[in-house]
Design a protein around this nucleic acid. Structure first.
Length: 732
DNA sequence: TATCGGCACACT
DNA sequence: TAGTGTGCC
């Protein structure tokens, strides 16, 4: 249910930017020959030609609709070009669209607070930018107004003389006698025009936009003139707009609430809501929703544009409609494993690129029982703490499924442990990761963690659970992102002290349990298979269920003998390291993914038997021959900067919005890679080490007693030296 | 029990 | 918190 927010004081300038039939545009950019042709994007092809998920404007002109199947679209428009959504692991893979969306976001974020509302929609708070423009170069002072800006639609303007021709628009934009709100809005129009042109120039994507004084109105406006146009809603036009607006067109009212308003209160337009008192609406729909309804009827919406460029959760799901419903535990496990692989890969990318970790793993399923009266019962969602590493995610997810299934089936659950059909069918599965928090830096040192809980003092209270701490950033290469961090580091980085660089660690968890270490020993870190322990880390029941699914189990042998299911999967699945790696590997990984690019090839190879979490940019930076990495990277390899934006930490988003890096070749990535965090090893409390799992202890001891580790560092060399090949050689 | 897959958010 | 439900694209 929607909730009312207090309206903020002062006029705000809010834009809603919507990419036009985005998936189609992405595909047309991939295949320029499709430009201008009636095109739609379909998902799957087996049944009735697949479902349309995006329809280009040319195809819409033929009557093609998104609700159609591919076959139907062909009937309506025989020449339509149907492009299939990429498929990976047997399911739709939307990553190319996510990445394309990120490109756009990083451009739009330059001008103000930016909220990524969906894969193809963004809200911007341009108030500051508009105020600045009004103060410095107000529209009325301009001799020329950009042609594109003159194509804007100004709601209410056309009614005066029947059109909103360019001359009229120019006059409106440049009025000297306009009130402050309209002047700001005019600035917003110019700013958004510029942004849209920039998006087109840099990404080849067109978008539509709405400019208004709040999110609700901006959103309404962006849909009014499409594609590739923009509409603004002056304050004076709000009432006229809402009075005649069908209630279902209002965001949040397209579903049951809107239906209820229609059926129970006889409301057909938003304006009709004005007839009801706030009390009445609250009485019927609750306090919050009632107030929200009362407000939106008046064009009031205090909802802020959140500074959020990254998603708050990641999910991977698939449906199994009709006869494709899953009937055996083995098939469920197979698909869960596929979904988990994708999720794990995305989590690793997020960690690597945005320095964020997710804390909760959730399984959703839809099911029905064909037999009894319970068949309508919902399959319960289940969640648990998220442990990084594909194998762990798969294991935990399967356990969640089993728990859910037991509950779903009630007392009969026990009998379904085998793979025999027991009257249930699974029609959809999805795995998601939520509670994603940034890995903060600067608030407290990682060393405090190693010094033990007593030294956390009050700072620990400020930390999120499982907080990963980080000392200041590496001095090299972090220009625009953080001069602050850069200088901090210069002060804190003594020449000869012992440092370990790392990119990530679940080091903030105060409970010093083995699990702490297991949670973040991701398959995205380097995969030194320290023992066979991970091989058997699955559930007891799983081994018998996977007999014909060889690609899904831990097996280090698989890394050199990949079993490929299709071309696209090949590279990623081939060398997957699902085993949990040790903390040392973990730190090594961090070094590779975060330190600056002065490693020499020889050293990089030494450190990089397998680099699951390396992005392309990492590879470039560490100078590893590409062919080597292509043969050794695994499930965390990010081929592009998925979800990566120029602003790695949300709390710095505002400050960083001036960044102008959008180079697809990865200069922004390099910038981010330049971050690294350091650990002073002599500060590790020995008693803490004792509590760690044996293999971790061994490795830490290895750091502390380097002479006992051949092929590591000479006594007297620092661990930092070991990880920093440009300075010192490895002992050979 | 063929609209897919994926997000956000409110409520309890 | 975990789990449910709604709603949007």
């Amino acid at each position: 249910m929607p909730v009312a927010r207090p309206d903020s004081s002062g006029a705000r300038i809010i834009a809603h930017v919507d990419l036009d039939c985005f998936y189609v545009q992405v595909e047309q950019r991939k295949q320029p020959k499709l430009r201008g042709l009636p095109t739609a994007v379909v998902q799957y092809n087996e049944w009735k030609g697949g479902g349309l998920i995006a329809v280009g404007y040319e195809a819409r002109n033929y009557g093609v609709k998104r609700s159609m199947r591919g076959d139907e679209a062909k009937e309506v428009c025989p020449q339509i070009e149907l492009v299939q959504v990429p498929v990976a692991r047997g399911k739709a893979d939307l990553s190319s669209y996510r990445n394309a969306g990120s490109e756009v976001v990083s451009i739009l974020a330059r001008k103000g607070r930016c909220e990524r509302a969906s894969i193809d929609e963004v809200y911007l708070d341009l108030t500051d930018a508009a105020e600045a423009m009004l103060a410095q170069t107000p529209p009325e002072s301009l001799d020329e107004v950009d042609e594109e800006a003159l194509k804007s639609h100004i709601l209410g303007l056309e009614s005066k003389d029947g059109n909103d021709s360019k001359a009229t628009v120019k006059e409106w934009l440049c009025r000297c006698d306009a009130d402050h709100r309209d002047k700001l809005l005019a600035c917003g129009v110019l700013i958004v025009t510029e942004l849209r042109m920039q998006v087109l120039k840099e990404t080849e994507f067109t978008c539509s936009a709405g400019i208004a004084h709040n999110k609700m109105l901006a959103k309404l406006a962006s849909g009014m003139n499409k594609p590739a146009q923009q509409t603004t809603v002056p304050f004076s036009s709000v009432k006229g707009l809402l009075d005649s607006l069908p209630i279902k067109k209002m965001k949040q009212l397209g579903g049951k609430l809107g239906t209820s308003l229609q059926n129970e209160l006889g409301v057909t337009t938003v304006g009709d809501l004005l007839k009801f008192s706030e009390d009445k609406l609250q009485e019927r729909y609750g306090f919050n929703t009632g107030t929200w309804l009362w407000n939106i009827a008046r064009g009031i919406s205090g909802e802020e544009v959140q500074a959020r460029l990254l998603p708050k959760s990641h999910g991977s799901g698939k449906s199994f409609p009709g006869p494709r419903a899953l009937k055996t535990v083995a098939s469920v496990q197979h698909w869960l494993n596929q979904l988990c692989e994708e999720l794990s890969e995305r989590l690793c990318s997020d960690l690597e690129q945005n320095k964020r970790i997710a804390h909760t793993l959730t399984l959703h399923a839809s099911a029905f029982k064909s037999s009894d009266s319970d068949s309508r019962k919902k399959f319960p969602s289940k969640s648990c703490p998220l442990r990084y590493g594909t194998a762990k995610i798969q294991e935990d997810t399967f356990n969640l499924f089993q728990a859910g299934l037991r509950e779903f089936l009630g007392s009969f659950g026990v009998k379904t442990q085998g793979s025999h059909y027991s009257g249930w069918r699974i029609t959809a599965l999805s795995v998601s990761a939520s509670k994603i928090v940034p890995v903060l830096s600067g608030t407290c040192s990682i060393t405090k963690y190693f010094n033990g809980p007593d030294k956390f003092g009050s700072t620990s209270e400020q930390l999120p659970d499982n907080f990963i701490d980080a000392a200041p950033l590496s001095p090299s290469g972090s220009e625009s992102y953080s001069t602050l961090n850069s200088t901090e580091l210069q002060n804190e980085l003594p020449g000869e002290q012992v440092w370990i660089e790392h990119s990530m660690a679940d080091l903030g968890q105060l409970e010093m349990k083995a699990n702490t270490w297991n949670r973040l020993d991701p398959s995205c870190s380097i995969s030194k298979q320290t023992s066979g322990q991970w091989f058997h880390s699955g559930t007891e029941s799983s081994s018998s269920l996977d007999q014909n699914k060889p690609q899904n189990r831990d097996d280090s042998r698989m890394r050199s003998v990949p079993i490929k299911s299709n071309q696209q999967e090949h590279k990623k699945s081939a060398l997957k390291d699902k085993g949990a790696s040790s903390i040392l590997n973990f730190f090594k990984s961090g070094d590779l993914s975060c330190s600056s690019g002065n490693h020499d090839t020889e050293h990089a190879e030494t450190l990089l038997p397998l680099g699951d979490c390396l992005s392309e940019s990492n590879k470039k930076q560490v100078n590893i021959p590409k062919e080597r990495l292509d043969n050794s990277t695994g499930d965390c390899l990010s081929e592009s900067n998925q979800n990566q934006v120029n602003i790695p930490k949300e709390r710095l988003a505002e400050a960083a919005t001036t960044s102008t890096t959008t180079d697809r070749c990865g200069s922004d990535q390099i910038q981010q890679r330049s971050e690294s965090w350091k650990l002073r090893i002599e500060e590790i409390d020995p008693s803490v080490i004792d509590e760690l799992p044996k293999e971790i202890q061994d490795e830490i001891q290895a750091w502390l007693r380097p002479s006992k580790q051949p092929h590591r560092v000479k006594r007297g060399f620092t661990i930092a030296d070991y990880f920093s090949p440009s300075k010192n050689r490895l002992e050979q």
